[in-house]
Structures are given as C-alpha cells and as structure tokens.
Nucleic acid binder design. Structure first.
Lengths: 204, 204
DNA sequence: GAAAAAAATCGACGCGGTGTAGAGTTCTCG
DNA sequence: CGAGAACTCTACACCGCGTCGATTTTTTTC
C-alpha cells in the first residue's frame, strides 16, 4: 500500500508566499550591502526577488516595513543566541565570553545591525526593536559589574549607569570597526574588554 | 552656484546673497529640529527663507549640500571653541573641564551634531567632517590619558586605542542623552567622566 | 475532481519631491 | 546710464513611492 496517509502529519502548510517573503528579505539584505538603504529602491528589491513592485506590496506595506522585518528577523536570531549563553560566576570569564560572543554577532550580522542603528531614529518600529536589544545588553553588563563588586544603582559611579555607557561604547566601537575589517573588530573588542575590566575594578 | 570663495574675500560690503545663504542655513536648522531630515523638503527650506525652490538652487546644488554647509558651519564653531580651551596639567582637572565643555557643546548644537552623525554614512562629505572632528577629540583624550600615566601606543591597553573607545562612548552617550533633556545629558556626562577617570588610573 | 475561496501577481495610475532650463528682474560698478 | 553680474521666478522632466482593480494561480472544500 502506498503511504498516502502520511499526509496526516502536521504539515505547516508552507505557502508559496512564505518562500517569496524570505526571498524578499534576503534580496533586501544583499542590496543593503551593495547599495545602502537610500540608493536601494523598492523596484530593485522586487526585481531581485523575481516579482514586480506591485506584487511586493502584497507582502509589505512599504520599503520601511521590508527593512523592519529584516531587522526583526536578525534581532530575533540575536536574542536566541544570547539566551543560549552559559552564565559564569567568574566576572573575568563572563566578560571575555560576552565580548567573544559579541564579536561573532557583529561578524555575522554587522550590516543589518548597522542599518538598524542608522534607522532607529527615523523608523520608530526599528528604534523600539533596537532599544529593547540594547536594554538586554545593558542589563547583562550591569549584572557582571555588580558581581564584580560595583554597587548597584543609577548614580554615575554605580552599575546601571556605567553599564549603559559601556554598552554605547561597545556599540559604537563595533559599528565603526565592523565597517573596516574583522581584524579591526577584534582589536576594538580587546580595547572594550580592557575598559570594561577596569571599570569593574578588575585591574589585574 | 556662485563662486563662494574667491569673489567674496575681497568684498567688504555684504551681498544680498550672503544674507539669504545664512537665512537658508538658519531655516534648515530650525526645520531639522521640528521635522527631521527626511520630512524636511527643499520647498520647506526655501519657503522658510523667503524664496522659491528655484532660487535656493542658485545657492546650493542639493538638499544634502545645504545640510553639509550647516554641519560645516557648526563644526567650525566647535573647533574654535575647542582651540580656546586652556590646557591644564592636572589630568583630573583636564578631564572635568573637557566634559564640561562637551556638555555645553551638545546643549548648544546637539541637534546638528546628531544630524551629522546620522548622515555620516550616506553623505561622504559630512562623514569626513565628523570623522575629522572625532580625531581631534580622540587626540585630546589620548593626551590626557598619557599625562595620567597610561602608556602611549595603539595596543588595546594603551592610550590611543582606549581614547578611541572612550570617544565613541561619549559620543553615543551624549547622542542619546541630548535627545532627552539637559538633566540626562548632565548625568551621562558624570558617568562618562567617571569611566574616563578610572580608565586613566585615577580611581580616587 | 470540480467549484469556491483565498493567495498571489501584474500593469497602470496619481502624487509628491528632486533637480534643471531659460527667461526675467535687480543690483553694482565703471 | 548701461553692461554685466547677481539674483529670482515659473515651468518642466524625471523618478520613486504607494494604490487600485483586474487577472491568474494556488489551496481548500465538498
């Protein structure tokens, strides 16, 4: 007997449109890399995905929505990766691990992350996404600082405030370095790690 | 576009166009504050300056050129202010003074500075302007670090590299804080100052 | 397996913004 | 005063975005 019955399985009906949607996002990412946001037109994206402009507007309401979806997809991946990080008790190890992970993140998704940062101001949706991501990082940095002996609190010399500043330092340093090369990124990472260690009082 | 440089240096009396040009830049700054770069149209600027679009294109070749000129004007003012800063021997005093000056700078020109940062990527001309400004700051920070005993050099734990990271920390912290309020800016400044002090080995 | 419903695609249009062209007006100076 | 430079305007061509209604393809339902 042929196994026609197997159709019973929970087939999450992958519609044709799901493929298209992914193709659109992939094309968008590629175009972002080679032309940048402004120069990239909706026509370009559609053409790259093998459809017409009209068809693209069936999936997304605007150019901004496409990019927002792309950022959302990347950021989700980011959170996933971060969640999987093992917690270490030794602050030194924790800092090293965090920086290493961040380097990987930027090597892999630097382009989209830079785009997200650039558009945070003009596209509120992306701003919210990125601001939430930053908060996760700030929280993590603050936790490490506190475990290293920095008093909790939001005063300038306490963990929360310092964590925020350190987060911005890392973001900006990586933003610039990731435009240059992997080596620059690695160097920026080492510098940031050093300052983070010192800020935590671990000046060994 | 008129010949901006040569003809004017000789001129004692101010041409009508000089007034217009300033009016355009002023209007641009005001509009930038109330609508942002994208929403601001060339027609808006022209109207605000009391001329038509066509007339504006006599002075500037494009919207980007207007904003670039505005950034150039502001940045020039920035350099002037920085040059006038007294050099102190005591690193602690130098750091405090530098942060205080930076707060003033952002209070006064935060809007244009944020715009410059935002457009650094897409408008190469502005990117160069801002990158040069950043280099000045990085040099100044590095000098203070060295005077405080940090070894010179570009390795992660040496002055140049650390100065670069600290500069980005300050830029980004101020960028965000200046969008909120003067109080936020003051707090961000205190935090950055604290981290700068620690990084310089002045943990008193 | 055919009819009905939903999903997907297309070409054409209107709108608003940019930058250009060319003609007209006002200022400046010999 | 008159020639040329400085300045201003209106009109136009172009491009990219987002919308619309008609049409075709895929999926669901009986």
């Amino acid at each position: 007997m042929p196994d026609h019955r197997a159709a019973r399985s929970r087939r999450v009906t992958e519609r044709k449109g799901d493929l298209r949607e992914r193709a659109i996002l992939d094309t968008c990412e590629a175009l972002l890399a080679q032309k940048g946001y402004d120069a990239m037109t909706v026509g370009d994206i559609a053409q790259g995905a093998g459809i017409t402009r009209g068809a693209l507007y069936f999936y997304f309401g605007s150019k901004q929505e496409v990019v927002t979806a792309l950022v959302a997809r990347t950021v989700e991946h980011l959170w996933e990766r971060s969640r999987a990080t093992a917690e270490t008790d030794d602050p030194r190890r924790a800092i090293a691990a965090a920086m290493q992970r961040t380097v990987e993140l930027w090597n892999e998704h630097g382009l989209v992350m830079r785009t997200a940062i650039d558009l945070s101001l003009t596209v509120p949706e992306i701003g919210a996404l990125w601001s939430h991501t930053a908060d996760l990082f700030i929280g993590a940095i603050a936790a490490v600082l506190e475990r290293a002996g920095v008093p909790p609190g939001t005063e300038p010399d306490q963990a929360s405030a310092m964590a925020r500043a350190l987060c911005w330092m890392i973001e900006r340093s990586f933003y610039h370095a990731s435009q240059e090369s992997r080596e620059a990124l690695q160097r920026a990472s080492s510098t940031c790690e050093h300052i983070w260690l010192i800020s935590a009082g671990l000046t060994a």
